[in-house]
Computed example of a mutant assay.
Amino acid sequence: MDNAHVLRNRVKTHLLEQIEKGELEVGKTINLAALSRKIGISVTPIREALSQLEQARIINAIPNRGFVVAKLTKTEAKNLYNTIAQLEIMALESSSFSEDDVEFLTLQQLKLKQASSHATRLDARFGFHDLLVAKCANTILLQILDDLKARILFYEQGFGQDVSFYEKVDNQNDAIIEAIKEDNIPTATLILKMNWMMVSEYIGAQMNI
Protein backbone atom coordinates (compact mmCIF):
# COMPACT_ATOMS: atom_id res chain seq x y z
CA MET A 1 0.00 0.00 0.00
CA ASP A 2 1.51 3.35 -1.07
CA ASN A 3 2.17 6.16 1.38
CA ALA A 4 -0.43 8.51 -0.15
CA HIS A 5 -3.11 5.84 0.30
CA VAL A 6 -2.09 5.35 3.93
CA LEU A 7 -2.28 9.09 4.60
CA ARG A 8 -5.72 9.40 2.97
CA ASN A 9 -7.00 6.51 5.08
CA ARG A 10 -5.67 8.17 8.23
CA VAL A 11 -7.54 11.34 7.36
CA LYS A 12 -10.77 9.48 6.59
CA THR A 13 -10.56 7.45 9.79
CA HIS A 14 -9.95 10.60 11.84
CA LEU A 15 -12.90 12.42 10.29
CA LEU A 16 -15.27 9.46 10.71
CA GLU A 17 -14.26 9.21 14.38
CA GLN A 18 -14.93 12.94 14.84
CA ILE A 19 -18.36 12.56 13.25
CA GLU A 20 -19.12 9.57 15.48
CA LYS A 21 -18.15 11.52 18.61
CA GLY A 22 -20.21 14.52 17.55
CA GLU A 23 -17.14 16.72 17.18
CA LEU A 24 -18.02 17.32 13.52
CA GLU A 25 -21.67 18.25 13.28
CA VAL A 26 -23.95 18.21 10.23
CA GLY A 27 -23.42 21.39 8.21
CA LYS A 28 -20.17 22.29 9.98
CA THR A 29 -17.31 23.39 7.73
CA ILE A 30 -14.14 21.30 7.93
CA ASN A 31 -11.11 23.54 8.53
CA LEU A 32 -8.32 22.09 6.39
CA ALA A 33 -5.49 24.05 8.03
CA ALA A 34 -6.63 23.12 11.55
CA LEU A 35 -7.06 19.50 10.52
CA SER A 36 -3.57 19.46 9.00
CA ARG A 37 -2.05 20.77 12.23
CA LYS A 38 -4.03 18.37 14.42
CA ILE A 39 -3.14 15.12 12.65
CA GLY A 40 0.23 16.16 11.21
CA ILE A 41 -0.62 15.55 7.57
CA SER A 42 -0.19 18.04 4.73
CA VAL A 43 -3.20 19.64 3.07
CA THR A 44 -2.83 17.74 -0.24
CA PRO A 45 -3.69 14.22 1.06
CA ILE A 46 -6.37 15.83 3.24
CA ARG A 47 -8.02 17.32 0.15
CA GLU A 48 -7.77 13.95 -1.59
CA ALA A 49 -9.38 12.19 1.37
CA LEU A 50 -12.14 14.80 1.53
CA SER A 51 -12.81 14.34 -2.19
CA GLN A 52 -13.18 10.58 -1.62
CA LEU A 53 -15.54 11.19 1.28
CA GLU A 54 -17.52 13.55 -0.97
CA GLN A 55 -17.85 10.79 -3.57
CA ALA A 56 -19.17 8.55 -0.80
CA ARG A 57 -21.60 11.40 0.07
CA ILE A 58 -20.39 11.61 3.66
CA ILE A 59 -19.46 15.24 3.16
CA ASN A 60 -20.47 17.93 0.67
CA ALA A 61 -18.34 20.49 -1.16
CA ILE A 62 -20.08 23.87 -0.85
CA PRO A 63 -18.90 26.78 -3.07
CA ASN A 64 -17.16 29.52 -1.05
CA ARG A 65 -17.43 27.44 2.11
CA GLY A 66 -15.40 24.29 1.53
CA PHE A 67 -16.28 20.82 2.78
CA VAL A 68 -19.14 20.32 5.23
CA VAL A 69 -20.63 17.24 6.90
CA ALA A 70 -23.60 16.05 4.83
CA LYS A 71 -27.11 15.80 6.25
CA LEU A 72 -28.42 12.29 6.83
CA THR A 73 -31.72 11.31 5.23
CA LYS A 74 -33.84 8.24 5.84
CA THR A 75 -34.58 7.84 2.12
CA GLU A 76 -30.90 7.89 1.22
CA ALA A 77 -30.14 5.27 3.88
CA LYS A 78 -32.85 2.96 2.54
CA ASN A 79 -31.59 3.34 -1.03
CA LEU A 80 -27.98 2.74 0.01
CA TYR A 81 -28.75 -0.44 1.92
CA ASN A 82 -30.88 -1.80 -0.92
CA THR A 83 -28.13 -1.08 -3.46
CA ILE A 84 -25.41 -2.64 -1.30
CA ALA A 85 -27.56 -5.73 -0.75
CA GLN A 86 -27.99 -6.20 -4.50
CA LEU A 87 -24.29 -5.67 -5.23
CA GLU A 88 -23.17 -8.08 -2.50
CA ILE A 89 -25.61 -10.68 -3.83
CA MET A 90 -24.08 -10.28 -7.30
CA ALA A 91 -20.60 -10.67 -5.81
CA LEU A 92 -21.59 -13.73 -3.77
CA GLU A 93 -23.29 -15.41 -6.74
CA SER A 94 -20.06 -15.18 -8.74
CA SER A 95 -17.86 -16.50 -5.92
CA SER A 96 -16.66 -19.92 -4.87
CA PHE A 97 -15.35 -20.74 -1.41
CA SER A 98 -12.65 -23.10 -0.23
CA GLU A 99 -12.52 -24.66 3.23
CA ASP A 100 -9.97 -22.00 4.20
CA ASP A 101 -12.33 -19.25 3.05
CA VAL A 102 -15.10 -20.65 5.22
CA GLU A 103 -12.68 -20.82 8.14
CA PHE A 104 -11.76 -17.16 7.69
CA LEU A 105 -15.45 -16.22 7.68
CA THR A 106 -16.02 -18.28 10.83
CA LEU A 107 -13.11 -16.63 12.62
CA GLN A 108 -14.31 -13.18 11.61
CA GLN A 109 -17.78 -14.00 12.89
CA LEU A 110 -16.21 -15.08 16.18
CA LYS A 111 -14.51 -11.67 16.40
CA LEU A 112 -17.91 -10.04 15.95
CA LYS A 113 -19.46 -12.13 18.71
CA GLN A 114 -16.59 -11.40 21.10
CA ALA A 115 -16.37 -7.66 20.39
CA SER A 116 -16.74 -5.63 23.57
CA SER A 117 -17.59 -2.20 22.16
CA HIS A 118 -19.72 -0.66 19.45
CA ALA A 119 -16.65 0.41 17.47
CA THR A 120 -15.10 -3.07 17.44
CA ARG A 121 -18.46 -4.72 16.66
CA LEU A 122 -18.94 -2.38 13.74
CA ASP A 123 -15.43 -3.03 12.45
CA ALA A 124 -15.92 -6.79 12.74
CA ARG A 125 -19.31 -6.69 11.00
CA PHE A 126 -17.95 -4.79 8.04
CA GLY A 127 -14.94 -7.11 8.01
CA PHE A 128 -17.29 -10.09 7.71
CA HIS A 129 -18.97 -8.56 4.67
CA ASP A 130 -15.61 -7.73 3.12
CA LEU A 131 -14.59 -11.39 3.40
CA LEU A 132 -17.94 -12.49 2.05
CA VAL A 133 -17.35 -10.72 -1.27
CA ALA A 134 -13.55 -10.98 -1.39
CA LYS A 135 -13.61 -13.91 -3.84
CA CYS A 136 -15.49 -11.88 -6.45
CA ALA A 137 -13.27 -11.14 -9.45
CA ASN A 138 -15.19 -8.01 -10.48
CA THR A 139 -12.95 -5.26 -9.10
CA ILE A 140 -15.24 -2.47 -10.31
CA LEU A 141 -18.15 -3.95 -8.36
CA LEU A 142 -15.97 -4.24 -5.26
CA GLN A 143 -14.80 -0.63 -5.56
CA ILE A 144 -18.38 0.60 -5.80
CA LEU A 145 -19.23 -1.46 -2.72
CA ASP A 146 -16.32 0.08 -0.80
CA ASP A 147 -17.49 3.60 -1.65
CA LEU A 148 -21.09 2.90 -0.67
CA LYS A 149 -20.06 1.18 2.56
CA ALA A 150 -18.11 4.28 3.58
CA ARG A 151 -21.42 6.11 3.55
CA ILE A 152 -23.41 3.55 5.53
CA LEU A 153 -20.56 3.31 8.02
CA PHE A 154 -21.38 6.95 8.72
CA TYR A 155 -24.97 5.99 9.55
CA GLU A 156 -24.10 3.01 11.68
CA GLN A 157 -21.49 4.83 13.74
CA GLY A 158 -24.28 6.97 15.10
CA PHE A 159 -27.20 4.58 15.22
CA GLY A 160 -26.19 0.91 15.35
CA GLN A 161 -25.40 0.47 19.03
CA ASP A 162 -28.23 -1.79 20.26
CA VAL A 163 -27.04 -5.18 21.59
CA SER A 164 -30.17 -6.93 20.26
CA PHE A 165 -29.30 -5.61 16.80
CA TYR A 166 -26.02 -7.53 16.86
CA GLU A 167 -27.68 -10.68 18.16
CA LYS A 168 -29.86 -10.74 15.03
CA VAL A 169 -26.80 -10.01 12.87
CA ASP A 170 -24.97 -12.92 14.51
CA ASN A 171 -27.80 -15.36 13.82
CA GLN A 172 -27.97 -14.35 10.16
CA ASN A 173 -24.19 -14.44 9.69
CA ASP A 174 -24.08 -17.95 11.18
CA ALA A 175 -26.80 -19.02 8.75
CA ILE A 176 -24.89 -17.52 5.80
CA ILE A 177 -21.76 -19.45 6.79
CA GLU A 178 -23.70 -22.70 7.10
CA ALA A 179 -25.25 -22.21 3.66
CA ILE A 180 -21.82 -21.58 2.13
CA LYS A 181 -20.46 -24.71 3.84
CA GLU A 182 -23.24 -26.68 2.15
CA ASP A 183 -22.42 -24.99 -1.17
CA ASN A 184 -25.94 -23.57 -1.16
CA ILE A 185 -25.26 -20.10 -2.55
CA PRO A 186 -28.94 -19.33 -3.36
CA THR A 187 -29.80 -19.73 0.34
CA ALA A 188 -26.75 -17.71 1.37
CA THR A 189 -27.77 -14.84 -0.92
CA LEU A 190 -31.35 -14.91 0.39
CA ILE A 191 -30.15 -14.65 3.98
CA LEU A 192 -27.68 -11.95 2.95
CA LYS A 193 -30.51 -9.88 1.49
CA MET A 194 -32.56 -10.38 4.66
CA ASN A 195 -29.55 -9.27 6.67
CA TRP A 196 -29.16 -5.96 4.86
CA MET A 197 -32.90 -5.28 4.90
CA MET A 198 -33.00 -5.92 8.65
CA VAL A 199 -30.13 -3.49 9.16
CA SER A 200 -31.81 -0.93 6.90
CA GLU A 201 -35.07 -1.09 8.83
CA TYR A 202 -33.26 -0.81 12.15
CA ILE A 203 -31.18 2.21 11.10
CA GLY A 204 -34.24 3.88 9.57
CA ALA A 205 -36.16 3.46 12.84
CA GLN A 206 -33.24 4.86 14.83
CA MET A 207 -33.05 7.95 12.63
CA ASN A 208 -36.69 8.72 13.51
CA ILE A 209 -37.17 11.11 10.61
Rank of each mutant, 00 (worst) to 15 (best):
N3P: 15
N3A: 12
A4Y: 15
H5W: 12
H5V: 13
N9T: 07
V11W: 04
K12S: 03
K12I: 09
H14V: 08
L15S: 00
E20D: 02
K21L: 08
V26K: 14
K28S: 14
N31K: 02
A34M: 10
G40P: 02
G40I: 04
G40H: 03
I41L: 00
I41H: 02
S42R: 07
V43G: 09
L50N: 01
L50G: 07
L53T: 01
E54C: 03
E54F: 04
Q55W: 15
Q55G: 14
I62Q: 12
I62P: 15
F67T: 00
V69P: 06
L72D: 06
L72R: 07
T73S: 07
T73V: 11
K74Q: 13
K74D: 12
A77W: 01
A77S: 10
N79A: 11
L80R: 03
N82L: 15
T83L: 12
Q86V: 11
L87H: 09
L92S: 06
S96V: 11
F97Q: 02
D100C: 05
V102M: 04
F104C: 10
F104T: 09
L105D: 00
L105Y: 02
K111P: 07
Q114H: 13
A115R: 01
S116H: 13
S116P: 13
T120E: 10
R121K: 05
L122D: 03
D123S: 08
A124C: 04
F126P: 05
D130F: 09
L132G: 13
K135S: 05
T139F: 11
T139V: 14
I140E: 04
Q143I: 13
I144Y: 12
I144E: 14
L145F: 03
L145M: 04
A150R: 07
R151W: 07
I152D: 04
L153T: 03
G158P: 00
V163M: 14
V163T: 07
V163P: 15
S164L: 12
S164A: 14
E178I: 09
A179L: 00
A179G: 02
K181S: 01
D183I: 09
D183R: 14
N184W: 03
P186L: 07
A188W: 06
L190N: 06
L190V: 03
I191C: 01
K193M: 08
M194R: 09
M197T: 09
M198V: 04
M198N: 06
S200E: 04
S200D: 05
E201V: 06
Y202F: 05
I203S: 00
G204Q: 14
A205R: 12
A205C: 14
N208Q: 14
